[in-house]
Computed example of a mutant assay.
Amino acid sequence: MPIKSKYSNQQIETILSEVGAIFQKHKAAPDLMLMIAGNIATNVVNQHVAESQRKKIAEQFAQALLASVEEKKD
């Protein structure tokens, strides 16, 4: 069953496009983009998630990332 987001695809795509434009402006290499994305995720978790929930949220985030990049098995 697909997960229903409370955010619209348009809102997500707009922000993603703006972030992508910043990466292009700075000619950021993929490893730098990933490092920045990781730092953003860490800062969000540390600043906006209760300490008692941080590990759980980080694990869920990591699992979602893995699920989004795994190859589909036929």
Rank of each mutant, 00 (worst) to 15 (best):
residue 2 P to N: 06
residue 4 K to M: 12
residue 5 S to M: 06
residue 5 S to L: 09
residue 5 S to R: 11
residue 5 S to V: 00
residue 6 K to H: 15
residue 7 Y to T: 07
residue 8 S to H: 06
residue 8 S to D: 07
residue 8 S to M: 04
residue 8 S to C: 11
residue 9 N to R: 13
residue 9 N to H: 15
residue 9 N to S: 14
residue 9 N to E: 15
residue 9 N to P: 08
residue 10 Q to W: 05
residue 10 Q to P: 06
residue 11 Q to D: 12
residue 11 Q to P: 00
residue 11 Q to Y: 14
residue 12 I to A: 01
residue 12 I to S: 10
residue 12 I to H: 04
residue 13 E to K: 02
residue 14 T to M: 11
residue 14 T to I: 08
residue 15 I to F: 00
residue 16 L to H: 02
residue 16 L to D: 05
residue 18 E to A: 12
residue 18 E to L: 12
residue 18 E to N: 06
residue 19 V to W: 06
residue 20 G to C: 07
residue 20 G to D: 03
residue 21 A to M: 11
residue 21 A to V: 02
residue 23 F to E: 02
residue 23 F to H: 06
residue 24 Q to R: 11
residue 24 Q to H: 07
residue 25 K to E: 12
residue 26 H to W: 08
residue 26 H to E: 11
residue 26 H to Y: 09
residue 27 K to I: 14
residue 27 K to R: 02
residue 27 K to F: 14
residue 30 P to S: 03
residue 32 L to S: 04
residue 33 M to L: 07
residue 34 L to M: 10
residue 35 M to L: 15
residue 35 M to D: 12
residue 36 I to L: 12
residue 36 I to N: 01
residue 37 A to W: 02
residue 37 A to Q: 02
residue 37 A to G: 01
residue 37 A to S: 00
residue 38 G to W: 03
residue 38 G to Q: 03
residue 38 G to K: 04
residue 39 N to I: 13
residue 39 N to G: 14
residue 39 N to K: 14
residue 39 N to W: 09
residue 40 I to W: 01
residue 40 I to S: 06
residue 41 A to Q: 02
residue 42 T to D: 12
residue 42 T to R: 10
residue 43 N to R: 09
residue 43 N to E: 13
residue 43 N to Y: 07
residue 44 V to H: 09
residue 44 V to R: 05
residue 44 V to I: 09
residue 44 V to S: 00
residue 47 Q to D: 15
residue 48 H to Y: 00
residue 49 V to N: 05
residue 49 V to I: 08
residue 50 A to E: 15
residue 51 E to W: 09
residue 52 S to Y: 08
residue 52 S to L: 10
residue 53 Q to N: 12
residue 53 Q to S: 11
residue 54 R to V: 00
residue 54 R to Q: 09
residue 55 K to E: 15
residue 55 K to F: 00
residue 55 K to A: 14
residue 56 K to V: 14
residue 56 K to N: 03
residue 56 K to G: 03
residue 58 A to F: 02
residue 60 Q to L: 15
residue 60 Q to V: 06
residue 60 Q to I: 04
residue 60 Q to P: 05
residue 61 F to W: 07
residue 61 F to I: 13
residue 61 F to D: 07
residue 62 A to S: 06
residue 62 A to W: 11
residue 62 A to F: 08
residue 63 Q to K: 15
residue 63 Q to M: 10
residue 64 A to Y: 02
residue 64 A to E: 06
residue 64 A to C: 04
residue 64 A to Q: 11
residue 64 A to M: 05
residue 64 A to G: 09
residue 65 L to H: 07
residue 66 L to Y: 13
residue 66 L to P: 00
residue 67 A to H: 10
residue 67 A to C: 07
residue 67 A to W: 12
residue 69 V to D: 02
residue 70 E to M: 15
residue 70 E to V: 00
residue 70 E to H: 08
residue 72 K to V: 03
residue 72 K to M: 07
residue 73 K to N: 08
residue 74 D to K: 12
residue 74 D to F: 10
residue 74 D to P: 09
residue 74 D to R: 01
